[in-house]
Simulated scan of single mutants.
Amino acid sequence: MADIQLDKIDLHILKLVQQHGKLSNQELAEKVGLSPSPCSRRVKALEEAGYIAGYATLLSPAHFDLALTAYIHVRLEKHSSETLENFEATVASYDEVQECCLLTGSDADYQLKVLVKDMPAFKVFLLDKLTTNEKIAGVHSSFVLKQVKNQTQIPLPPSAD
């Protein structure tokens, strides 16, 4: 990954592609005040430098009858590298898990964000998948009643406006 100095145009490009991932190069170029070729070169440079990590389409969970979001705090019995790696590999294989974070400053070792259809589906995930791992010492689940904010954009420096 090459390191590049981000200027105001680069930051504007990054802001726009975060907010509007389907912008064509032509539309993006117009919005940042460049012609298409230089705009395309800048986007390619930002990709190669690692500022743009990838592209994704965000699907609506409601359209797939996925109505229950749960956060599960998991405490493991041991903290050996092997135990952590095995847990992480297992959790990474579960489609229901949207996020898995190793924590500090908490009684839990990991926090999982899980998306399922309903409480019976959650029960199946929890009892038939997650807690079959003998290295788990305990779990604590919380359920989302209302999602107040959900965004994928990261904050950029003020010059990105």
Score class of each variant (00 low, 15 high):
3 D>P: 03
5 Q>L: 08
6 L>W: 05
7 D>Y: 11
9 I>T: 15
12 H>I: 03
15 K>D: 07
17 V>H: 00
18 Q>I: 05
20 H>V: 05
20 H>Q: 13
21 G>S: 07
24 S>Q: 12
25 N>I: 15
26 Q>A: 15
27 E>L: 09
27 E>T: 13
28 L>T: 12
30 E>H: 15
33 G>P: 02
36 P>R: 12
37 S>G: 15
40 S>V: 03
42 R>E: 04
42 R>V: 10
44 K>W: 03
45 A>L: 02
46 L>W: 09
48 E>I: 01
49 A>H: 00
50 G>Y: 01
50 G>A: 04
51 Y>D: 00
52 I>K: 00
53 A>Q: 09
54 G>P: 01
60 S>H: 03
61 P>V: 06
62 A>Y: 12
63 H>I: 02
64 F>N: 13
64 F>R: 15
65 D>F: 07
65 D>K: 07
67 A>H: 11
67 A>I: 00
69 T>I: 14
71 Y>K: 12
72 I>T: 02
73 H>A: 09
73 H>E: 09
75 R>G: 04
76 L>M: 12
77 E>T: 14
79 H>D: 10
80 S>H: 14
83 T>K: 07
83 T>D: 12
86 N>V: 06
87 F>C: 03
88 E>P: 04
89 A>Y: 05
91 V>P: 00
92 A>P: 05
97 V>W: 01
100 C>M: 06
103 L>I: 10
109 D>K: 03
109 D>W: 00
113 K>P: 00
114 V>L: 08
114 V>D: 05
117 K>I: 04
119 M>N: 04
121 A>F: 07
123 K>S: 07
124 V>Y: 10
125 F>W: 12
130 L>C: 01
131 T>W: 01
132 T>P: 02
134 E>A: 13
135 K>R: 11
135 K>M: 02
138 G>C: 12
141 S>C: 10
141 S>V: 14
142 S>D: 10
142 S>T: 13
144 V>E: 14
144 V>Y: 13
145 L>C: 14
146 K>F: 11
147 Q>I: 15
150 N>D: 15
150 N>F: 15
152 T>D: 06
152 T>A: 06
153 Q>H: 07
153 Q>E: 08
154 I>M: 04
156 L>A: 09
156 L>R: 02
156 L>I: 07
158 P>S: 08
160 A>T: 10
160 A>L: 06
